[in-house]
């Protein structure tokens, strides 16, 4: 505790960076997941296949390598500079988006065809059926899976410290370099992640309990 308390402010602002990074990536990743998942579901020509290739590629490589692509490889290729924070946010969003796309697609596919036929028969257009019937049901159904991915993403943010983002893990390592109390610092770090992840899962459980639809 004697090492944690004097550095509490420093560590808490790291936690804030972690939370913001996670939140940005969750929002952007979810939007990307919905778009890619819908492209896959409706099997739009060309774009559908492109989405499939992107998803397969991303799901087949490690997160760390994916971050390196966004921080080192793509800027080298395109001749631009990017800050570690922006590269991490891009990497996490594109990474989790590929996983969420598959979850969305299976959610969309779980909506029974009779329901769509009924909606069509009531006079809605294809787009309206998708927008007002299929999508909301699919979204509600995959809340538990979504939150599993969000928890995964929250844990992933620790990897951003490797490319030099000063988030919770990065800051804890700095404190350790100064104070050298590795056990206290790493155990505190682990417990902080534990509490945050458990909180995030319980939000997911509460939401899925509230919004579950049975059709």
């Amino acid at each position: 505790m004697d090492v944690i308390l004097p550095n509490l402010g420093f560590l808490l602002s790291g936690l804030a960076t972690t939370a913001v990074l996670a939140l940005i990536s969750i929002v952007a990743g979810t939007v990307l997941g919905i778009v890619l998942g819908t492209l896959r579901y409706t099997s739009v020509p060309v774009l559908g296949q492109a989405a499939a290739i992107y998803i397969e590629f991303t799901r087949g490589i490690p997160l760390l390598v994916f971050l390196f692509l966004f921080y080192f490889a793509l800027p080298a290729l395109g001749g631009y500079k990017v800050s570690a924070y922006v590269a991490a946010a891009q990497g996490f969003s594109f990474f989790i988006g590929a996983y969420l796309a598959e979850d969305f697609r299976s959610g969309l596919r779980s909506v029974r065809p009779q329901l769509k036929q009924a909606a069509r028969a009531s006079g809605l257009t294809e787009t309206q059926v998708f927008r007002h019937i299929v999508l909301p049901i699919a979204l509600r159904r995959i809340i538990p899976t979504l939150f599993n991915q969000y928890v995964r993403l929250f844990k992933f943010t620790s990897v951003a410290s490797v490319i030099g983002v000063s988030e919770l893990t990065g800051r804890a390592m700095l404190v350790n370099a100064r104070e050298f109390a590795p056990i206290a610092i790493i155990v505190t770090l682990a417990l902080t992640y534990l509490v945050c992840c458990l909180a995030l899962s319980s939000i997911g459980r509460a939401l899925s309990h509230r919004f579950t639809v049975r059709t």
Partner: peptide, 11 residues
């Protein structure tokens, strides 16, 4: 499973 793998390794 609620502690990042990186922290497991650091531990």
């Amino acid at each position: 499973r609620n502690i990042p793998l990186l922290i497991h390794m650091y531990f």
